[in-house]
């Protein structure tokens, strides 16, 4: 009897998981259909760009500065041991542009923006605001989801560039703690090691990070059922899923970049 019950529970669990996965794929696929359908909501898109981009500037800036500073301070002794301290600006800029800038920015945004979108849409769902939009013959997916996903997709690469720039500055400050290097000299040495082939893959993966953070936040919020406690759960699971998605995309991006570099 217990075995039958367990089997039934397992079947229900599998069914739930498969239904959830299918639903999330359809939800994401709908984005590509809706983005080209009807009138684009420019005002809401710009508003979201402001909320996602401008409002994240202090947090992202501080994180970028600390990352640049810490990276430089921690790498310095190893390089100094081999007498290669002059390579430090180039190493810091390379690390920041290729990996640390995009991933750290995306993780901060997964926490900050992913949870905000999940909680916002979740509370709109439980207070019937999304239904109110639907019955007013306004497509809530187009108005709420398309604008937010496009805003994250567009703004996260912009924030990555900003993080890199602030990170460089952090590196410059760290260099000056132990040695005396001019601003111009540091930046010349740093930028000399950054190639176009480093910037393009980094920004391309940032676009995918942005899309994943936006669509996951929206999906978790849009599919909230029940009361207000489920809004908190939606925000939390949006952060977890978006952070995980960032690592998975990063892993795939590294493989693809590696493949191109081998054949290039």
């Amino acid at each position: 009897m217990e075995a039958i019950e367990e089997q039934h529970n397992f079947k229900s669990y599998l069914k739930k998981k498969f239904t959830g996965t299918g639903d999330s794929i359809f939800f994401a696929a709908r984005f590509f259909k809706e983005v080209f359908r009807g009138r684009f909501q420019w005002q809401e898109f710009l508003n979201q760009c402001y909320m996602i981009g401008y409002k994240s500037v202090p947090l992202i800036g501080l994180t970028g500065f600390i990352m640049g500073l810490v990276l430089t301070l921690q790498s310095r002794p190893s390089l100094a041991e081999f007498g290669a301290e002059s390579l430090l600006p180039g190493m810091v800029s390379n690390s920041l542009v290729i990996e640390i800038g995009p991933v750290i920015t995306a993780l901060i945004c997964a926490g900050n923006i992913g949870s905000r979108i999940g909680a916002e849409l979740g509370s709109m769902k439980v207070t019937e605001q999304i239904d109110a939009m639907e019955v007013s013959a306004i497509n809530p997916y187009k108005y709420l989801v398309v604008t937010r996903v496009l805003a994250t997709t567009f703004m996260i690469p912009v924030l990555v560039i900003y993080t890199d720039a602030i990170g460089f500055f952090g590196g410059y400050v760290a260099m000056n703690i132990h040695s005396d290097i001019s601003f111009f000299h540091f930046f010349s040495a740093a930028l000399a090691k950054v190639y176009f082939t480093d910037i393009i893959p980094a920004l391309t993966k940032s676009v995918f990070f942005g899309f994943a953070i936006g669509i996951i936040g929206c999906y978790k919020g849009y599919r909230v059922t029940g009361g207000t406690e489920s809004v908190g759960r939606a925000a939390n699971s949006a952060v977890v899923a978006a952070s995980l998605a960032v690592f998975v995309i990063d892993m795939i991006a590294v493989q693809i970049t590696d493949l191109f570099q081998k054949h290039g």
Partner: peptide, 19 residues
């Protein structure tokens, strides 16, 4: 949606857009 425009729906908690 064309039909919905001609139907008004007042929700239990009014469902005003809080932003």
């Amino acid at each position: 949606n064309e039909t919905r425009i001609k139907i008004g729906f007042l929700f239990q908690n009014a469902a005003l857009y809080d932003s």
